[in-house]
Amino acid sequence: MTHRRWFTPWLLAGPAVLWLAVFNLWPAVNTVILSFTNARPLGGGRFTGLANYQRAVEDEQLADALVNSIVYLLICLPLLTLLPLLLALLVERRLPGITFFRTAFYTPVIASAVVVALIWGWVLDDRGLLNGLLGQLGLAARPVSFLTDRWLLLFSAIGLTVWKGLGYYMVIYLSALGNVGRELHEAAAVDGASAVRRLWHVTLPGVRPTMMLVSVLISVSALRVFSELYVLSHGTGGPGGRDMSVVMLIQLYSRGFTGHIGYASALSLLLFAITVGPMLLLARLGRKAA
């Protein structure tokens, strides 16, 4: 007997269970229900069958958003799997002042995506620092429209995501590197293995499970991108609204007089469909790591 009254555990877990029901389970069920209605942000809603899904199939903006997601993922994946590993190897060694560098490299992670996008928006503007630099070096006769071109805007947002994510994945790698056998490393060093060979034959195999974990984390977050694209495009989604992400579309339809909660819910389920694979993989990898 670990406690006297049967309801004591429920008293302690009560608030969390209430939150589980009201703010997690019910919204999940309700998303499915709403996706079959024409509910509006201001209320109402009638059952309309598969109308929202039909609309999704014909929605060209959604097709653009899905293309954007795939491009986002394909570029983020290699960059954010490899660069943070190199960074982790750089700060792994216990040199004087290394804690300062580790903390400093983590700064972009703790900043809001809005803050980061505003700073970089100013750098990438037509009159911004980067265009100033390019002009001065004679590399561009006219300002490069980083923020108003359909593809350049997307690439700028991707650059921002990569820059902001470096420190986050660095810390995950750092945690893994601590577990890669130091003895193994030292043995290899004594045997005369060069630093490069040690990296290839000792470190890399040691962090392979972490690389897997990291790449799944990257995939999920690339599919969920919102703030960077929203702020860089001033909420417009770029020229012709072609630089929308799926989450931007969900936000767009969730509010205002032109909003459509039913359609936004159908888009939410679509987002779930494309993220559930990596999410399940993540849960499995997480359990294995624990």
């Binding site: 009201v22 703010f23 997690n24 019910w26 919204p27 999940a28 309700n30 998303t31 709403l34 509910a39 942000p41 999920v220 969920r224 919102f226 989450v247 969900i250 936000q251 339809y253 969730s254 509010r255 909660i261 936004a264 819910s265 939410s268 389920l269 987002l271 779930f272 993220t275 999410m279």
Partner: peptide, 12 residues
């Protein structure tokens, strides 16, 4: 992911 339920969260 939080974004999936954000619309029905708003309804709640």
């Amino acid at each position: 992911p939080g974004e999936v339920t954000i619309v029905s969260q708003y309804v709640t």
